[in-house]
Design a protein around this nucleic acid. Structure first.
Lengths: 402, 402
DNA sequence: TTTTTTAAGTTGAAAAAGTAAGTTAATCTC
DNA sequence: GAGATTAACTTACTTTTTCAACTTAAAAAA
């Protein structure tokens, strides 16, 4: 059921949005006739829509294509610098800013470590400074930027989903994140959870391009999934969909930072892995071991490290099997430092997943590594703006038609 | 992203569908002006659409409503007998047929035990006989029936989702279920998984009426969930979404009939519960104990039975917590024989769920018992027809306008 | 060169929604 | 009880947008 009434002018917006989507995807060498075929719209309609896009500067006629027996088609190409989009990835311990164009090219980026968890206001102040500096470096005026996306390392919270769930980050309690940036940037702004942002990035520019539904699993200190269903972020009713880190896979298992037992995150999250290595090798917990150290040593043949990583892989596989049984996405994309472990980890993930989905068709779901790596989340934050801008409701504003 | 182009006549169909939905929901005492307010359509448009519905016989003007200071409104009421819909619930060990009208009134129903699992063709033959007999009893001609929905106790399978996944029911391997009925009923037919059908029924006629997303968990020999998201059945990419029974909650737990360990179903499904009672009370496994016996004894104060049911409840609560963390529906609806246990079970389910969703907003999700009980699935199968018929694509045919 | 094929653009009709003004009906006010 | 007010609904006309058929244009094939 769709509780939305439709009026005449919405038709144009919907179809304009549709043409735009095809141009953004198949960009080079698209002719009007190609668009007719792709959209199943009439020639009249396509010509009218293309004229609008030509006038607004969104596309240009760049030449003629190959003939297939008749008049050669005029090729249309989208102008990737028609608009830029800005994103900030607020991580647990870093801030990463990025500007991308309409083809997903990274125009500029800036990143630095920051104690995000314990300093809410300082984080946002620093983010503002980094964004401003990045705009200067890129020689871009704010008027060329379509909007700003911000990702945060926690589920969204509040009636308006305008703050973060501060359970693990008490200093962020009650802060309306975007309000900290609004005085400095007169732009449409979007707030999103980091895993959801990563999911959108892989859908637009990464391994998810060909798929309409996917799960993007971000493995870090915490573990969360971004679910893309029907090409849109799926947030669930209260915004907590995709919280795979706190799904139970061992009902009386180890204690998790959330206070419960047997959460997947307590086995697969970075602190869990470090603790396992430390306890199994008799190293003191206070030693400054990093996940990179653990993986490097494993690759150099340290058997205990390898075993710990493989165990984590098996637990991750169970959680993914549960995800496939419940949500059944087209593809699962894994992202995070731990992915540097490569096949050692992946083989365990896949075999453990296969065991637990055998009678179901979910077993054919590919599990792959992220293509965008550490850029994924910041890129996704920026992509939120583009994603929104080409929706029928916003398209006239985006093309400066209003 | 919506890859659907829009043409002019689709507007009418969309808006007609919208008006129909409101009439089906708010049925008694709806005036044209009410519809204007509800749909945000203009008076002209609403009047035109209402005239179409009056001419087709779908609604009637039944009288006048209360004045609020001016002319009294003409009340429109949908004619519930404009069309009927037929459903068959093929269970694991029963066949239930049902005819409902457009208000969800049960016009006729027939049910009998049947060894469905081991006899595929015989089941469908018997279903055909029951449906024919039910039509006779109800004195209904096939021309008054809008379609036939069929539910099966397994996930759908095949490219066209036209058969069932025969892992637990080998006799059904390869059978295209609806093809067995097509020669006898010249009707639009729909095949659906039982839990999905139950979900649709609760959404339309039960406790899910006010909600746009819900999870309907069917607890029987197997345990499966039907997910309704944005008022539509969510099937996932390969049709295996909602397979909550085979999600792992104990990575090295008991063996499940699917061959894996620690599936929720092995603790909460009827065979698991019976085996627990038998082993804890030293009764032989071959004794003919039913789940009804177990519940009745528990209610009469048998502590072992109560404990077993409570343990099942705790496991169910964990699986529900996982579902809330991953899918985050608005409400969870429980259905099945085991629900007769009442509060004894529900309290454990809820407290175990709460423990595991505490830091997340999912904790506020209500968990309630099904309102439709054993009728839910057959009713849902029938409702599939209505659900489809009022979609914009089919609405003209439904109103006999083509 | 002529014919065929493909691409792009144009014209007129049709569908549907909206606006504005008008009609009908019931209730309130003086 | 006559006129004013409010509500519900209808009618005539305008706007938007699409589609179908046709025209123009360019290239390839015969």
């Amino acid at each position: 059921m769709n509780f939305q009434s439709v009026n005449v002018s919405l038709i144009r917006e919907q179809n304009l949005s549709l043409v735009l989507q095809y141009l953004l995807q198949n960009s080079p060498q698209t002719s009007r006739t190609d668009l007719m075929r792709l959209t199943h719209l009439s020639g009249t309609t396509v010509s009218a829509l293309v004229n609008i896009l030509l006038n607004s500067g969104f596309v240009s006629e760049t030449g003629v294509g190959e003939s297939i027996g008749g008049r050669r088609p005029i090729t249309l190409e989208l102008n990737p610098t028609f608009a830029y989009s800005m994103g900030v990835d607020i991580g647990a311990s870093h801030i990463t800013c990025m500007i991308i164009d309409l083809k997903g090219n990274v125009v500029a980026s800036l990143s630095e470590p920051f104690d995000v968890i314990h300093k809410a206001h300082a984080t946002m102040k620093r983010a503002k400074e980094l964004l401003t500096r990045m705009l200067e470096i890129a020689h871009l005026d704010l008027s060329r930027v379509a909007g700003l996306g911000v990702s945060i390392p926690a589920p969204l919270d509040g009636e308006k989903q305008d703050r973060l769930l501060a359970f693990y980050m008490p200093d962020w309690e009650g802060m309306v994140v975007l309000d900290e940036l609004r005085p400095f940037f007169d732009l449409p702004m979007f707030l999103e959870n980091d895993a959801n942002a990563g999911g959108i990035a892989e859908k637009w520019w990464g391994v998810g391009r060909q798929h309409h539904s996917l799960a993007f699993i971000k493995l870090g200190v915490g573990v969360g999934a971004g679910l893309i269903i029907n090409d849109e972020i799926y947030r669930g009713f209260a915004g907590s969909a995709g919280e795979i880190g706190h799904t139970t896979i061992e009902s009386k298992g180890r204690l998790c930072r959330c206070g419960n037992r047997g959460c997947m995150e307590s086995y697969v999250g970075i602190p869990g892995i470090l603790k396992d290595v430390q306890s199994r090798r008799g190293i003191s917990e206070s030693s400054l071991m990093t996940i990179e150290d653990v993986i490097a040593a494993a690759k150099n043949g340290e058997p205990v490290n390898t075993e710990v990583l493989q165990t984590a892989g098996r637990y991750l596989g169970i959680a993914i099997a549960n995800l496939l049984n419940l949500v059944n996405p087209e593809i699962v994309i894994l992202n995070g430092y731990i992915m540097d472990a490569g096949d050692m980890l992946m083989q365990e993930v896949v075999s453990s997943m296969l065991e637990r989905t055998l009678p179901l068709r979910a077993e054919f779901t590919p599990i792959v590594a992220s293509r965008l790596g550490r850029d994924a989340v910041a890129m996704g934050a920026a992509t939120l703006v583009i994603h929104q801008s080409i929706q029928p409701e916003y398209i006239n504003r985006f093309l400066h038609l209003t």
